[in-house]
Simulated assay, not measured.
Amino acid sequence: MPVECREKIVDEPKPGAIAGALLAHYDTHARNLSWRVSPSDRRAGVRPDPYRVWLSEVMLQQTTVAAVTGYFERFTSRWPNVEALAAAPDADVLAAWAGLGYYARARNLIACARAIATDHQGRFPDTEAGLRALPGIGDYTAAAVAAIAFDRPSAVVDANVERVTARLFAIETPLPAARIQIRACVSDITPAARPGDFAQAMMDLGATICTPRSPSCLLCPLAQHCAARGAGIAESLPVKPPKKARPQRIGTAWWIEQDGRVLLIQRPGSGILGGMRALPDDGWSARSDGNAQPPVTGQWQRIDAAVAHVFTHFSLGLALALYRGPQIDKVAIENLNGAVWWPVEEIAEAGLPTLFAKAAAIAIQHR
């Protein structure tokens, strides 16, 4: 094992002992997930579908299993393979993604599906290098798909695996600097046989036993190998840097309703909530507040309610104003990108991102 791992352990366990203990536990306690092939099915010769593995890994980035499950099932029911997803209109995919957050993932999903369908005859590359060359696939996703779908001995490191490994080897270097060492350790203990199951077993261990708070060390199949447990410091690892305060931004969304239809626009393809249908707003961003200027002149009623929403790098307080007249003609809105009059009764089908879905709900209460 490399120095980075070896120097942390007095009685160094063999990598094979770690993998063997964890895989034995996984064979009995693996989570039943919609996108996963169970250990018993794997032994019976069932192979994971690379499309389902890839789709689940993209959805699970910074999102919980509980939040992803329903989306995954709806996506795979509507688009059962990568060719079907590649042929889907952007607006349909973005609408189906609405509420899952981190919308750049959806745009990358579309681009990647089309690259696979067009340039790879609908087949996923079976190596990390080949997968990394696809749009929107980074190191983690490439490693996960390579290991789980193709049994490549790749070092798969998500947040759960990061935590398990930091504790297993008592890595006290703070994140993110520790990630090079963590990845080296994961690479060392990943077995040549069943690397996909091993990766999923590590994820399960972090999700169910080696949890951020109050890890269940007495239930852990790797307890006897864990240096942090032996030192009594398991719960303090991994060491994380202090969180930076998010800047607070303010903006306004505009509800324009006429004849039972509300005006929606399409946000620019890049940037926050890119390509999504939304209510018109006043140009707020991560760097600045909105300008409070409505998209059309007329009578406006400001609602005494606001939507609080947290993005990765900032928080937003979104106020809401309702248009009260006069009637708007087509010329007044022709400069609004993708403007469409949407039936209010069908607003749930518009695929609004969570921020604007909350704003719409408030507006409907005050119509």
Rank of each mutant, 00 (worst) to 15 (best):
A292M: 13
S38N: 06
H120D: 01
A133S: 13
G16F: 10
W35S: 01
V93F: 00
G99I: 04
S315V: 07
L175Y: 02
G325F: 10
R47G: 08
H313K: 13
P153G: 09
A245G: 07
V10Y: 08
R78I: 09
F198C: 05
R277G: 00
G196H: 04
A106F: 04
A245T: 15
L355V: 08
Q61W: 06
A84E: 12
Y51K: 10
L279K: 01
A111P: 02
T208C: 11
L175V: 00
A201K: 00
A231P: 04
I180P: 01
A193N: 13
I209Y: 04
R229G: 12
V307Q: 02
P135S: 08
D282G: 01
D304W: 09
R163Q: 08
G20T: 08
A332I: 01
R324A: 15
Q181P: 01
R78G: 10
R74T: 14
A106S: 11
A321N: 12
V68C: 12
S187V: 04
A149R: 02
D281E: 04
R367E: 15
Y51E: 11
R43H: 12
P280R: 02
Q62P: 07
R36D: 03
Y140V: 05
I110G: 01
A361F: 07
D282C: 02
H313F: 12
A66E: 15
P89W: 10
I250T: 15
Y323A: 06
A113Y: 02
V340N: 08
A111R: 10
F75H: 04
R105H: 11
V68L: 07
V156Q: 06
G298R: 03
R287Y: 09
M1G: 13
V331K: 13
I116S: 00
E4G: 09
A245D: 12
A223H: 13
A360R: 02
Y140P: 04
C210M: 04
W35P: 00
V239C: 05
D158L: 05
C210P: 02
F169V: 14
C185K: 03
F314T: 04
A96G: 06
D282R: 00
I333C: 03
A361V: 14
G338M: 07
G20F: 06
C112Q: 00
D304Y: 11
P343K: 10
Y102P: 01
A30W: 07
D329H: 12
A286F: 03
I182S: 00
R324T: 11
E346H: 13
Y51S: 06
G99C: 10
S216T: 12
G130H: 05
H309N: 03
